[in-house]
Amino acid sequence: MSYANWKAQKKRSAGFLWQDIKRNKTCYGFLAPYAIIFFTFYVIPVCVSIYLSFTYYNVLQPARFLGLNNYINLLLADDIFLTAVKNTFLIAAITGPIGYIMAFLFAWLIHELPRGIRAFAVLIFYAPTISGQVYVMWALIFSGDALGYANAWLTKLGVIDTPVLWLTNPEYMMGVVLLVTLWLSLGAGFLSFVAGLNTIPSDQYEAGYVDGIKNRWQELWYITLPNMKSMLMFGAVMAITQTFNTADVTMSLCGFPSTDYAARTVVTHLIDYGSYRFEMGYASAIATVLFLSMFLCNKFIQKALARLGT
């Protein structure tokens, strides 16, 4: 049944709504197992967390209601939070779009390869994400002493004569973080593009040849992209959540806390308050602000993607 129909019916009376629910009881049956688990372990915790953001809560004593105080402190009085927002925004604005475009571009180029070597190519490009912890290797590469690979090679080439403190000097930290985040950006979105390219019906491409599509770029724009809309949407949301949630990379590379908080992100700020200072109310306020900014960003991208291929 179409949405417009349903809307019109809903206006007419609540009795129709009940009939509608009854008619769709198979749908609710299919949804039920997911819905029950989802409400218990995702919806309720999110609601509790949003409530806690208006309180002072240190886990041991009962929560004390504070009104908007957490938010006021966070936005007006917390200087480190400003650094964190600046860094997170930098990471999201640079690695988000570049990583997203790279993910699609490489998935598409790999799809152009003969089938036999595709699986191998996907493996190479997905290698950074396949084991959660390989990025720790970058800490050895950018280690600050002369034994670090980057320092040793640059010294050998004569570019530098003293080792660079890649991960402790605020000047270089964010550069390294950006590089490693970009390296990690072919994740969930990339794999969904790889899978999505396989679901485009081949008769559409055949019809394209007949209709005179001349090269791979025209084919990309007129056939591939419009067919990939829902995967592109998925990839975009994953890119947003991944970049806005950057924390593990900065923590394991630059230390926690990093020198002068130079590599602090919103989520490391949150972990600091939540797991070390036990100010869960404040941490929840950070989470809520972070979530709201992701939500707005998501709405904006949804609008942009709706125009694709038109």
Binding site: I44, P45, V237, I240, V267, L270, G274, M280, S284, N298
Partner: peptide, 17 residues
């Protein structure tokens, strides 16, 4: 609601969970 839950940072959900 599912997309919203996707975007909510997992760290603060640990205690309610």
């Amino acid at each position: 609601m599912v997309t919203i839950a996707l975007m909510f940072s997992g760290y603060v959900l640990a205690i309610p969970n």
